[in-house]
């Protein structure tokens, strides 16, 4: 989907759905996932259709992703950090399955 013009200078490792991925420290989680070819970060809570980043400036909320221990976050506003564990945001959140958070 998207490629990097240069290799990360400060690489971090994180997980999405258990899959280990590399990103650049401080870039948005959405950027790191798009660079890894992942575009469907969530399912719609209404019609369960796949959704992904749309505006990248914090307006549309299509990029919601589930951060373990933190809950639902906008992937375009949240920086990529070492050790983050991310899940695809469920259509209808099930707190049991997602281990709390807010």
């Amino acid at each position: 989907m998207f490629k990097r013009l240069s290799e990360p200078k400060a690489p971090v490792t994180f997980e999405f759905e258990g899959q280990p991925l590399k990103g650049e420290a401080g870039e948005s989680i959405a950027a790191a996932l798009l660079a890894a070819g992942i575009i469907d970060l969530r399912r719609s809570g209404e019609d369960d259709s796949p959704r992904g980043p749309y505006c990248m400036i914090g307006n549309c909320f299509e990029c919601l992703v589930w951060i373990e221990g933190q809950g639902s976050r906008q992937a375009c506003r949240e920086p990529a950090r070492e050790g983050l564990k991310l899940r695809r945001h469920p259509g209808r959140p099930d707190p049991q399955a997602f281990g709390g958070g807010s």
Partner: peptide
Amino acid sequence: QTPGVMTMGAAQTLMKDAGL
């Protein structure tokens, strides 16, 4: 709303911010 439809500003933000 299909993933793969984005705004131009979004793609430009990815370019400026993350070099993508």
